[in-house]
């Protein structure tokens, strides 16, 4: 494997996805959970740009990347709003304390 720009980007995508999912599974803090989701989204943005570069459709994937950023900002905002509301109502951001629904 050579260190061409495409390969470096692919390495970046894999690394970010790995970090994101590892973080999602291990962190207990709701704010960090939302940040991990954003890291995953950044991985896909990099992935889309790399895909556009490989297939020669860069203009297409760039516009997709911008749309993804906008759409996932909305998700991040709602996630943060839930986190704030949970902090107010439950008094904690720890996901371990959010386990009333089981079975």
């Amino acid at each position: 494997m050579n260190f061409s720009p495409v390969n470096i980007c692919l390495l970046g995508v894999t690394g970010l996805v790995a970090v994101g999912f590892y973080g999602l599974l291990t962190t207990r803090n709701l704010i960090k959970v939302v940040i991990m989701l954003q890291i995953l989204v950044k991985a896909t943005v990099l992935g889309l740009i790399t895909a556009g570069n490989k297939s020669g459709q860069l203009y297409l994937t760039q516009s997709m990347a911008i749309t993804v950023i906008v759409a996932d900002t909305i998700v991040a905002v709602i996630g943060m709003a839930f986190a704030i509301q949970i902090r107010r109502q439950v008094g904690t951001l720890d996901t371990n304390d959010l386990s009333s629904l089981r079975g």
Partner: peptide, 23 residues
Amino acid sequence: LEAGIKYLVQSAAGSVLVLLAIG
């Protein structure tokens, strides 16, 4: 709220995978 955040996190992680597939 607990149900909402669980739904949001799982759904958002799923939609990231869809985007990777589109890529």
